[in-house]
Design a protein around this nucleic acid. Structure first.
Length: 274
DNA sequence: AGGTCCCGAGTGGTCGTTGA
DNA sequence: TCAACGACCACTCGGGACCT
């Protein structure tokens, strides 16, 4: 990637479903080396949509991680292990009883007659997944620091002035964007992650905890911000699953919702049987 | 073991605030 | 004035604790 031309970077963007960014990257002449040298601030300037920022940052981070991993371990064996581990969570997420049916087509290696090999592959995959999970967790807990706030926010924080409405929004916006980088494309931080971020903010700037309930207010604001980001999203499986699960209209009871869903199921059954 | 209650996490809806 | 966004409310769902 370091040696890529601007055109190669643009082709890569298209491959990653980020084709929308191509004109901007061409305009700014972002080569492979430049891409790897982008910092968070530059990406925020270059890419308008937070969703695209998050995806791009994630790709770059993953590339750097795998390169670092390669250097640390000195060989492709561990890299393939990493790839294996990265594939494993996806499989597990999709491992509903129905999805087991097409496993063979996706993972022919598991269908080997040799049970020993099968067991070794599974064991290796479990181990790799465990290593990656620990690595990801340590990434969050060890490396999380508050983002570099813009100048006016930094001034306000330095002066320990109580933030007004717009300043609060800017702080929350930066925290949300910063958290997104650690979420592997997900828009659902864990409670622990919300807590870590708000704790970091209040520890660095205790005056933000005005009347002792600042922690809950900032946490709720952060959650609402993520909710606001998720609201328009319609092409994310996780978001759509939760909308399906919790989504409702005021006045609708559980029963009426259940009726609607059973009607939908009936319609699907009629369609499939036809 | 099964029922009930509570709590936290998620949603949509509505209203208020802000800034262009 | 109006769109964007935050704050808050009411609601559902799932899981754990507790009780019978």
């Amino acid at each position: 990637m370091e040696t890529w031309s601007v055109d190669q970077v643009c082709k890569w963007l298209v491959d990653k479903n980020l084709g929308e960014l191509v004109p901007r990257f061409q305009e700014e002449e972002v080569s492979g080396a430049a891409l790897l040298a982008l910092n968070d601030r530059m990406i925020q300037q270059l890419v308008k949509k937070i969703g695209h920022q998050a995806v791009l940052m994630d790709f770059i981070r993953k590339y750097k991680q795998s390169n670092q991993w390669l250097k640390l371990t000195g060989g492709p064996r561990e890299t393939s292990l990493l790839t294996l581990a990265q594939a494993a969570p996806e499989r597990e997420e999709n491992s509903s009883p129905t999805s087991y049916g097409d496993q063979t087509s996706l993972h022919p290696a598991e269908n080997l007659d040799n049970g020993l090999i099968d067991q070794r592959v599974l064991k290796q995959r479990r181990h790799a997944k465990h290593v990656l999970a620990r690595y990801k967790a340590s990434q969050w807990t060890k490396s999380y620091v508050l983002p570099e706030f813009p100048y006016d926010v930094k001034c306000m924080l330095a002066e320990q002035k109580c933030p007004d409405h717009s300043m609060r929004i800017r702080i929350i916006e930066f925290l949300q964007a910063d958290m997104t980088k650690y979420l592997e494309g997900s828009l659902y931080p864990t409670t622990q992650q919300y807590n870590d971020v708000v704790n970091a903010l209040l520890q660095a700037h205790p005056f933000l905890d005005e009347d002792g309930c600042g922690f809950f207010l900032w946490k709720r604001a952060l959650k609402d911000r993520f909710k606001y980001v998720r609201r328009p999203i319609e092409d994310d499986e996780q978001v759509m699953r939760n909308k399906c699960k919790f989504g409702h209209r005021r006045g609708q009871t559980r029963k009426s919702l259940a009726d609607i869903r059973s009607d939908e199921i009936k319609i699907v059954q009629i369609k499939t049987s036809a």
